[in-house]
Design a protein around this nucleic acid. Sequence first.
DNA 1: GCCAACGTTGGC
DNA 2: GCCAACGTTGGC
Length: 152
Amino acid sequence: MAYWLFKTEPDAYSLTDLKNAPQQSTFWEGIRNYQARNFMRDSMQEGDLVFIYHSSCKVPAVVGVAKITQAAQVDPYQFDASSHYYDPKSSPDKPRWVGVTVQYVEQLPNPVTLKAIKADDNIVDLALKKAGRLSIMPVTDREWQHIVAMSQ
DNA sequence: GCCAACGTTGGC
DNA sequence: GCCAACGTTGGC
């Protein structure tokens, strides 16, 4: 089983929104970054666990856990001209973008802030620490356990 | 709201 | 296929 981190802007879609969704589940649409897509398409499997990270907000932080309940599927919004996620260069016979389905698992006892993660020498390789704009990234076993411990 | 970082686009 | 211009992300 693998671990991941998904960024989301809580104003647009928060951990609470996921918790309150039908079946506490949603299709994670709108990822339009090749590196993030490749992680979803090539590596994510049902049962993998995901940190939900709130970005572009007052206190950027890892706030909860979700799990992958369905591996990558074609993201239908790329074909919808009225969608913000429309991609005119993609076509149904050669789709460019995918998404996975995630389900709410739990809220962490305390948010683990970006500030705390940046200050922690045990977390070195996490893409979040680098000035990255990657919206989906892998998390190692060790980093996962450490961040969970930090939330206690 | 500013701005640095960085991915993408398109002209050549 | 290089690289400048542009757009977007996201912390502050």
